[in-house]
Amino acid sequence: MDNAGKEFFHKRYSGLGWKITDKKPLHSLRVNTLKITAKELITRLEKLGVKLERIPFTKNGYYYESKFSLGAITEHLLGYYYIQEAGAQLPVEVLDPKTTDTVLDCCAAPGGKTTQLAQQMKNQGTIVSFELKPHRIPSILMNLERCGVTNTTVFQNNFAAAKGQYDKILLDAPCSGNYQLEEGWFEKRTIEDIQKSSEIQKRLLQDAVRLLKTGGTMVYSTCSLEPEENELNIQWAIENLPVRLEKVNLSIGEDGLTSVFGKKLHPDVALCKRLWPPEAFFIAKMVKL
């Protein structure tokens, strides 16, 4: 096939300026400061033989090396940490919710970013979370319970059904993913899948902006590497929605692409951040006009 496969996608990524590496993402966790301090947790995990190293570009993230699964020990079951990729910890940090904010979490399961929102808001303010897919609901409920989240209300529905207007919105959109997260990704995805995904994301962006207060902030993120789901969607948002972009202040990653396959994009798209693997994330921050 000329629109799929490893070679096809690698060629695309090279065309976008990425020097392909096979570097795998390191295992990482986020300390749940709602329940424990980083110092206490580090002491306990190191006693168990876990090696931890601070992730320099996150607030509460640590890379870890362990000979056993960190998903089944007491500290995890008591909600002292959340196993979360380093890149996945960034959208909430960019959104930077405050303790008085009302926040909409659009596609919430399995709840990693919801628990992080609650943590950053010190379990104050209000979070309203939506998850459409019924089979993903148990995971978010269990994670909220485990992490001791008390400022969140969850609905099993499309977030477009949300009522009211929100100070901040996190739209971590469903996407085609990336080859690091899914075995056989190259064989499963075609460019048509990515275009379909992009159309859905545009609808989600439109709905989310409608629910955002004037002057409110929204973060749009995906773990996809494809420009159709990232920069091209943001270009579409600038052209069609009442928003302006704000700079994503992160010490890692590259500026959003402003030239994609020969097409020139709005210069503001460079305010977004594109993280190539191993972190593999795209983050855009926008304010409603």
């Binding site: 309203v128 909220l144 001791g148 969140t152």
Partner: peptide
């Protein structure tokens, strides 16, 4: 309590058949 919510506030217990099981907190 918002109508239609499936989780709201601090979860303390779940019904499992005839008994309750507590939340972790």
């Amino acid at each position: 309590r918002m109508p239609g919510a499936i989780y709201s506030g601090e979860c303390i217990a779940h019904m499992r058949g005839p008994v309750l099981i507590p939340s972790i907190t």
